[in-house]
Design a protein around this nucleic acid. Structure first.
Lengths: 359, 359
DNA sequence: ATTAGCACTCGAAGGAAAAGAGTGCTAGCA
DNA sequence: TGCTAGCACTCTTTTCCTTCGAGTGCTAAT
């Protein structure tokens, strides 16, 4: 059922008023803004309450939006807000010098997001499965060699291996050839015991060397896929009046500080609109988030990777402003990963397309 | 001036009572424990107050320890507490399976420390300067090669380089030889412009390749030295009654969440006793820590590295228990790094001494 | 030196009253 | 029919006052 225009503006005004002040909004305050008397507003509000879009904390208080009210506001009523030039400039400046390794970049993006929105923020990247493209074994000395693996996502992993016995250069070379033959193009799930056994036989490896290197490879491949989740600015929660109760604050903060809990619940839900997803209060799966809202934006991290940034806050979150900021940052990140912003901090004569580096 | 034995036990009782209850301690409560009447206690407490060891929140309240009182308690009165077997077992178990890269290890140690003490914790490692031991350049294709650097701390760093022009295998080999000749044994401070220039000339490098690789190297060396600082469990603060005021909690939490602020102030102060250092309230340099105390323990991380773990809490911190736990964890870490605990998670037939891996 | 006793202080807790904000409803008006 | 003015009513918040109790400081007695 479609709402009348006036109901819409009343709902909008209640939502925005409540977002701004954290106090229930009364009819009198709206009369001027809507352009009719407070009694009329009261009637309308009463109906909106009946429809489940507004709530009354108690009989003689103003109205606050219900989860459904927020949802309607976010879906239909909210105006797309623009960033101030100063804000845009601040974001651009932060993103401009980003040529670091991806973990650091994510950590800084998290902090940027948190400081711009004044809510706790998280940042993560989802990667597709990877495999090794090639192996190189560097012979260091009789007891030492280095395994270097170039992965399909163009990251490089390495491992220094010390042995309690001697090997010859040729043995290393053989091993290298075997790994290049047997383990390239293989994802972590495809590394089976039988693959390891057969390679061991081929290498005449009685010391478990193959197994060690294979398990190193599996670890790398698994790690390359799991998202490094960054959480920043958890203490921003304490700015919000709804978290002046330390117990509530503590509960939510422990939850969001545990990245794994957050990430396992987040991507499952909500529908995405223009790369933006808003999950309001009880829509959240996690019990701990039932009084909170989550706004997340996604961006294209290149090579089929998808990245996410988001913030957590009370349901009374400034959705409009947060959405604008997240979209802006996400767009900046997409651009960054697309490489149209040349990575800086390197000698630009070279225009190296610097891959993600691993340390 | 030396305190009488009775004054000492009164001070001890006040400190421990206040630590336990967060309430000012009155004379009546102590009478039984000390073994004389409350009036006597009052006289003694009055003198202790005069000496600046105790304080009165207001006329008709009990006494609480002053910073000086805590200090005296920590230095002379506090009994070394032993861990319960369950606690020790929990720590051992956590530390037992630690063969990961150092950043992850530090993060987990921080979390362990925080969860054992119920205070926010931090963990960091100070490393001596490092240099490269050897370079290997892996030719991938005409436009791509990988630089692998083995550092003196036995970590391996690598970088994938894409070129907008072609190179031959031999050019890469030449470059490799030059880097092994000019850049091994060189710390980050010693990489000068003139060194880069002369290498560039020797390599007939007109594309700035040498500069790019050198700057990569500098970054690695610098990063290898700077401590990765991990902060964990900041939300534990909210368990403490002194941080029920959200503003205070927020102020301190933002401070400790910013690792750099913390690390710059911490190591400067306090005197270390048996690897343990306690900094009480106003002894802290940082304004934000003036109402808080910091306890840190150091451990030997091998290869001349020193590691630190610590917790931040109210001045009314359970120094005795925290000190015991930190010492135990620190000792465990020293043992871990000394390698007497064999790293697990690897095929033990091999007894690989696995170096720190870099990704 | 220690203790019992007592007057005094000051915060905490409780409770009634007043204030204030907002509603729901009814009646009147265009 | 839709809007508005008015008013009684509800419920929270604030304020103020009292009471209570813990604890002190001091004095006098042991």
């Amino acid at each position: 059922m479609e709402l009348s225009a006036r109901k819409k503006s009343i709902l909008t005004a209640v939502v925005e008023g409540y977002i701004a002040t954290a106090e229930p909004v009364g009819s009198k305050a709206l009369a001027e803004r809507i352009g009719c008397s407070s009694a009329t507003i009261r009637n309308e509000m009463s109906e909106l309450t009946g429809m489940g879009l507004l709530e009354q904390p108690h009989t003689s208080a103003g109205r606050i939006p219900s989860a459904a009210g927020y949802r309607l506001y976010v879906n239909e009523l909210m105006e797309k807000q623009k960033l101030s030039e100063a804000e845009a400039a601040a974001i651009n400046e932060k993103l401009a010098r980003k040529d670091e390794q991806i973990e650091k970049l994510m950590a800084e993006v998290g902090q940027l997001t948190s400081s711009m929105t004044r809510y706790p923020a998280y940042a993560l990247t989802m990667k597709p499965p990877v495999a090794a493209k090639r192996f190189d074994f560097i012979y260091v000395d009789a007891n030492t060699f280095i395994v270097v693996a170039l992965l399909t996502d163009n990251t490089v992993k390495n491992k220094l291996v010390h042995l309690p016995f001697s090997v010859h250069q040729e043995q290393i070379t053989t091993l290298s050839a075997l790994f290049n033959a047997n383990f390239t193009g293989v994802t972590d799930r495809e590394i089976t015991d039988s693959l390891i056994r057969s390679t061991e036989r081929a290498a005449r490896d009685t010391y478990g060397l193959v197994a060690v290197i294979a398990s190193f490879l599996m670890e790398c491949l698994a790690a390359a896929r799991t998202a490094p989740m960054e959480v920043a600015g958890a203490s921003q929660l304490l700015n919000q009046p709804e978290f002046r109760d330390p117990d509530k604050a503590h509960a939510l903060m422990s939850f969001i500080s545990d990245g794994s809990r957050l990430v396992s619940d987040l991507p499952a839900l909500g529908t995405e609109q223009e790369g933006l997803r808003v999950t309001i209060g009880p829509e959240n799966l996690a019990e701990e988030l039932r009084d909170s809202s989550v706004v997340m934006a996604s961006y294209d991290a290149g090579d089929g990777m998808r990245g996410y940034i988001g913030v957590v806050g009370p349901t009374r979150m400034d959705y409009s402003s947060v959405a604008a900021k997240l979209s802006y940052i996400a767009a900046g990140l997409s651009r960054l990963f697309a490489g149209t912003d040349a990575p800086k901090g390197l000698d630009n004569k070279l225009v190296l397309k610097e891959s993600e580096r691993h340390e």
